[in-house]
Computed example of a mutant assay.
Amino acid sequence: MSSNSNPQHEVWLRGPVEGIPALLQPAAHALLQTSEELKKYTEGISPEQLWKKPVGRASIGFHLQHITGVLDRMMTYSKGENLTESQFEYLKAEGKESSAIRIENLISDFDNKLAEALAYFKTLPEEILTEKRTVGRKKLPSTVIGLLFHAAEHSQRHTGQLLVTASLLKGVE
């Protein structure tokens, strides 16, 4: 995906992601970094730990679902569309414990949404990135680039929170 795929460097230091407009490179890099970090930070997490909420904080399962859901919703808004009933159902289910949900599936769901996002980014001419878009039922103001950047930075924020939760669960200091 990046011109220099040396995994010793963070994604943003590996060069541009082919086909992604220059202004969306930071968002693409952050989302790709999220994918790598989710796999790293959830290594060794048991199915029982997936829904644990140490010291009352959100579970790893919630963070994984939420990162995927936010990316999906922000792409929808960036297209000038309203959320579907299925997206509202997904939102309501974020963080609801289920023994049927496996960590591998949640990571795979994010990676599939990431592939969809990167393909979408490649279709966007830079001149539309500043076009106005609205968010939610209240139609709060944003732009195409604002929504896509939010999805990327939000994914990194929740990945950091997931790291802390995973560390607590693993007993790492």
Score class of each variant (00 low, 15 high):
H150W: 10
L32Q: 06
S98N: 08
L168E: 12
T130V: 08
I45H: 11
Y41K: 06
L162Y: 07
G44M: 11
K40V: 06
Y120G: 04
S86G: 04
F110E: 09
G44P: 07
A93Q: 14
E48S: 07
L163S: 10
S35M: 02
Y90R: 15
K53F: 09
R133I: 10
T42R: 04
H150K: 07
I107G: 02
L114V: 07
E36G: 00
V172H: 08
S59I: 07
S46Q: 09
P21Y: 03
R102F: 13
L169E: 09
L13D: 08
L168G: 05
D109I: 05
I45W: 08
N6G: 06
E127Y: 04
L148G: 02
E48K: 07
L23Y: 08
A27H: 15
E127V: 05
Q8I: 13
Q87K: 13
R137H: 14
A152L: 13
L23C: 06
Q25E: 13
I101S: 00
I101H: 02
P21K: 07
Q87Y: 13
G56N: 14
K138W: 13
A119I: 03
S35W: 07
E126D: 10
S35D: 00
G61C: 05
E43C: 03
V135D: 11
S86F: 09
A22K: 13
L50N: 00
S142N: 05
V144T: 01
A117W: 12
R133S: 04
E173A: 05
T130Q: 13
S98E: 02
I20N: 12
I103V: 11
V17L: 11
G61A: 02
V135G: 09
T76N: 06
L32N: 02
L64D: 11
S59N: 05
V17F: 15
T143G: 01
K138L: 15
E116A: 06
G56I: 15
D111E: 15
S142C: 01
M1K: 14
T143V: 04
S3V: 08
R73N: 03
H9P: 04
K52P: 05
K139N: 14
L129S: 06
E81S: 13
Q156N: 11
A115L: 07
K138T: 12
T76Y: 12
E37T: 00
H66G: 09
T76W: 15
T159L: 09
